[in-house]
Design a protein around this nucleic acid. Sequence first.
DNA 1: TATTCATATGATTACTTATTCATATGATAA
DNA 2: TTATCATATGAATAAGTAATCATATGAATA
Lengths: 127, 127
Amino acid sequence: MEDEEKLVCAENCPHLNKINNVKSLEPKADEYQKLSNMFKLFSDETRLKIICSLLKEELCVCDLCELLGLNQSQVSHQLQLLRNSKLVKFRREGKQIFYSLDDEHVELIIQMALNHILEEEEKNGML
Amino acid sequence: MEDEEKLVCAENCPHLNKINNVKSLEPKADEYQKLSNMFKLFSDETRLKIICSLLKEELCVCDLCELLGLNQSQVSHQLQLLRNSKLVKFRREGKQIFYSLDDEHVELIIQMALNHILEEEEKNGML
DNA sequence: TATTCATATGATTACTTATTCATATGATAA
DNA sequence: TTATCATATGAATAAGTAATCATATGAATA
């Protein structure tokens, strides 16, 4: 810790107590990774639209294509990511495959984020 | 709609009612974009760590560097993104600049996502 | 059992985003 | 009023991700 490259400001960074406080409360490394992976799934507009569509209805791939105006390959690739992360489940019915959400937190997370957006819009609209 | 390239499965996709139902409830286009932008901010591990650190304490840039083991440029660049999206605010005190969160939803969103992660872990640990 | 339909997958390309390095800015202190 | 410290910023490169296109799979039907 002493001969390492100095990162802290000045000789005696006045905030070491803060740093230690934060450090003790922080999620651990692998949780950060899982969190960021989860948010990554929501961060692509196409995937987000797919997720939101599935919030309300079980849908087959072609329904999603039609609904979102996307081609089949695009939708399937994104569904693959969602599948791999266990965010959606699916069932086969004849030739079609129906996707639905496999998580109860998703709706809450999106709702929170939407609340944030709407509040921002209000704030800006009112100034 | 008739001479467009056909996206819907078969001649008579049986789920047009579903599609219309979903369509009527969906967030609008610009909201999707804002949502995905918001999630994009959380989707980078470095940024996420910065955000989580600021959940608990107002911190200066060099505190963040020290805490997260990152170089100053990395942290400043990411803070710039957070600033641009109005997710953090900052104040100058002498040579140092202190950052803090400027949003009440952030903690909730991360907490939800963390709940999801933990539940997944439990599920897998128990099988 | 050959054909069609719905979906999945692999490989390539195009795009986006983060990291790095060098330098600029703005405040303080010598 | 120059030197130093904390931070910001720009440009270049590197890394990661999505779109596209071609093809594969697996079920149903003729």
